[in-house]
């Protein structure tokens, strides 16, 4: 969403970053033993306060506090995932001192034709965290379980509107309800800026159910304004409010879904740099600082280093398929 309030970065950071960029280009490759040697550029391809931004800042905080990286690290925000990935590919492909964060959004943008770049245009380093989805209804909703909602979506799609975020959340409802045999092109889905912003119309009653990552609306669940019908991971989740909630699979739809965030480097990142970051991040996720952060943010710990390329390949196929079913792949162009 275009926000009405606008923001600008501190001027000197811009200057510093420009200098760093020039310096890096001129100096060329660093020796493997010294890596990272100079300062690291940590790109969060979205605005301050966004999911990418909080993730990157959490990584920097953990790496600094646990003294895992000595080199200075600067977080740089970029305008949205599409121009963000374009900049990463066009400007930083051969810069070993740049890493960035990406998510399901990257695969979605490629599938819808918004972005010509995808995970093969950069070097995935490690998947860090996952957010799991839930299907929520108002506390007094007549729906007792996911099956009730699916029945209504099949028999009366017009009278069963849903709400949720405009971006990745679409993929979850698309994957879930198409798997359940619903004609998803008939579903009325009112899109908002994010999960918690879409909760209002469910609480009011205009929308029958909400599709959102669970961490986003945990407060509304705790205060018993919303009720959770089913959750998206492969096995049940922990915590007093979540342990009794069936998974999609238990509720009769054979699907696991998550919204993952991973760290990447430029396509030309040398092997020693990739190895360095894979090792460092593996160490980082075990530290108390990082564990404390993901607990507070309610992120799911889902480190994946070996096989991250294969994982992204498979995800791209699934996401492209869902996007097609949603009818969002029109006019896709490379």
């Amino acid at each position: 969403m275009k926000t009405v309030q606008h923001r600008v970065y501190r001027v000197w950071i811009v200057a510093a970053l420009l200098l760093i960029g020039i310096g890096m280009g001129a100096a060329g490759a660093v020796l493997a033993a010294d890596y990272p040697g100079k300062s690291m550029l940590m790109i969060a391809p979205s605005k301050p306060g966004s999911g990418f931004d909080t993730t990157m800042r959490a990584v920097v905080l953990a790496l600094t506090q646990e003294k895992l990286v000595q080199a200075p690290m600067t977080v740089m925000n970029m305008a949205g995932s599409v121009p963000g990935t374009a900049q990463i590919v066009l400007r930083y492909s051969n810069d070993p001192n740049m890493i960035a964060v990406m998510s399901t959004t990257g695969s979605l943008n490629y599938a819808t034709g918004l972005s010509p770049y995808y995970h093969k245009d950069w070097k995935p380093i490690a998947r860090l965290i996952s957010a799991y989805y839930g299907i929520f209804v108002r506390q007094d909703s007549p729906y007792k379980n996911l099956g009730d909602l699916i029945k209504d979506l099949k028999n009366n799609p017009g009278g069963t509107p849903l709400s949720g975020g405009y971006s990745d959340d679409r993929l979850c409802y698309g994957a879930l309800f198409s798997k359940a045999g619903v004609d998803i092109t008939k579903i009325n889905y009112a899109a908002f800026a994010g999960g918690v912003e879409s909760a209002g119309v469910v609480l009011e009653g205009s929308a029958k159910a909400l599709v959102s990552t669970i961490d986003d609306v945990m407060g509304l669940l705790e205060s018993k304004q919303l009720r959770l019908l089913a959750v998206s991971p492969g096995k049940r989740m922990e915590g007093p409010l979540l342990k009794d909630i069936p998974t999609f699979r238990e509720a009769g739809v054979d699907l696991e879904w998550d919204n993952f965030r991973y760290i990447l480097g430029g396509k030309g990142m040398p092997d020693y740099a990739v190895k360095y970051w894979q090792g460092t991040l593996t160490k980082m996720v075990k530290t108390p600082t990082w564990q404390g952060m993901i607990k507070k943010y309610r992120w799911g710990d889902s480190l994946l280093v070996e096989g991250i390329d294969k994982f992204l390949d498979e995800k791209q196929v699934v996401i492209t398929d869902v996007v097609k079913k949603l009818g969002m792949d029109k006019k896709a162009k490379k």
Partner: peptide, 20 residues
């Protein structure tokens, strides 16, 4: 309600979560 009214309050909501 725990519903942010603007982009800024959405960031504040995130911060509140961090503070527990």
């Amino acid at each position: 309600l725990g519903i942010p009214g603007s982009a800024t309050t959405a960031v504040m909501l995130g911060a509140f979560m961090i503070y527990g």
